[in-house]
Design a protein around this nucleic acid. Structure first.
Lengths: 236, 236
DNA sequence: GTCTATAGTCGGATAGAC
DNA sequence: GTCTATCCGACTATAGAC
């Protein structure tokens, strides 16, 4: 069980002035509270209290609750870009080189899928917000999609093309990547089901390692099967 | 876009008395409203209006809002069992027979994964409720899990065991099924992302057919790869 | 910039008539 | 069983002191 403190640790004082510091604290508390509640049912009172700020600070810095919500969406993008950006850069560099060895492609693909597995506490609440936006998109989804989801999908699809030799830009490839990524996302979107079925009390590092092995194997098998069918060459 | 009527069609009078009829109308409206909102932010006023019932009827039939929510969870179970039950029965019958041909296993598995793809309007709102329970389980998750999710997973895992010859009851097999099912669920849990990436305006029958083809192919390739590795026999 | 006080709204639940 | 009226708590947003 996660103990939810009534106030978060103060934001690390990276030489932020008191104003920006209050802003950051509110955003951090916003991630937490919007993760556990919907935009409508989250209360500014709780967010302010968790951030150790006055309620009116929300109006002052973000206009209103919705404004804070959008700021939270931007912060989530920053978090995801920070986490996935370097890997995406690396993959794009490889793709630009042109001649990407099949084994290298598979390995990069595995890392890409694996990187989407993270189950750190902050990632869990972030996931919760992203899922809500997937099911009932608001303007915040535009922020998430244009800020990180789109690029992740583009790079993933291009990696599939590089590995299988499919012509670029096919819709089918987009679907393929979405489905393969789903193998990984299932452990975040349908967390409780797998926790119960596997008899776990939590998804910790051991569990992540297990999941990663299984998912990587299945993803690679699926891609190998596709490549074999397209190129008639068994890569095993 | 889906136009949401301010009142649902009256519940088909399957010889229900007026009391049970009001009950059914409230549950149906509850699915709708709890699908679009969280338990906390859904309002009994809206549910009652959509059901064409008086607000007090909720207290009368279900005690309070939470009671209605649990009744909705039971109704979702009934819906899912109705949709998946016959297929699960068929698969279990095959498994009991013992000697299940590999091709038959794969075909059944494909149907199982495909059946989880449904994107009918009612299924979409049901999905929304299930996802919320996955991320923040309440007592309603017990109802969903014990009422249908568990059996779906058990049958799926046993089908994998029958196909690959894995020893029964391995945790790894549970993870495998969860991940493979994720390929299908991704199109319901992360609907908006694929809609945008593919440039669709909706996920209609054509789109479902495309998805089903891709997902089935990838699922079968993953299972074939596993079987080959376990049994050293290339099934192609 | 930060805080208190409060206006104005809304929703769940209940009492009690019919 | 069904309905109206209402109580009471909780919320957002704002006005304005400091």
């Amino acid at each position: 069980m996660i103990s939810t403190p009534s106030t978060l640790d103060p934001v690390a004082p990276h030489e932020l002035g008191r104003g920006p510091l209050a802003r950051a604290a509110l955003i951090r508390a916003g991630v937490q509270v919007f993760g556990e509640n919907s935009l409508a049912s989250a209360t500014t009172r709780e967010i302010a209290q968790l951030a150790g700020q006055n309620i009116s600070a929300i109006a002052y810095y973000f206009g209103n609750k919705e404004g804070l919500y959008f700021a939270v969406a931007h912060h989530i993008c920053d978090t995801l870009v920070e986490r996935l950006g370097p890997l995406l850069d690396e993959i794009e560099a490889q793709l630009r080189q042109g001649n990407c060895e099949p084994e290298v492609c598979l390995q990069l693909f595995g890392r890409l899928i694996g990187a989407s597995l993270s189950t750190h506490q902050e990632m869990l609440t972030v996931t919760s917000i992203v899922v809500k936006e997937q099911m009932h998109p608001t303007q915040a989804f535009d922020i998430l999609y244009e800020g990180c989801l789109e690029r992740l999908h583009q790079v993933g699809a291009r990696l599939i093309e590089a590995y299988t030799g499919e012509p670029p830009g096919q819709q089918e490839t987009v679907l393929r990547f979405h489905a393969l990524l789903g193998q990984s996302l299932a452990f975040r979107f349908a967390r409780e089901t797998i926790v119960r079925r596997a008899g776990w009390s939590d998804i910790g590092p051991e569990q992540v390692a297990l999941i990663e092995r299984v998912v990587t194997e299945q993803v690679c098998d699926a891609l190998r099967g596709l490549r074999w069918r397209r190129q008639g060459a068994d890569p095993r």
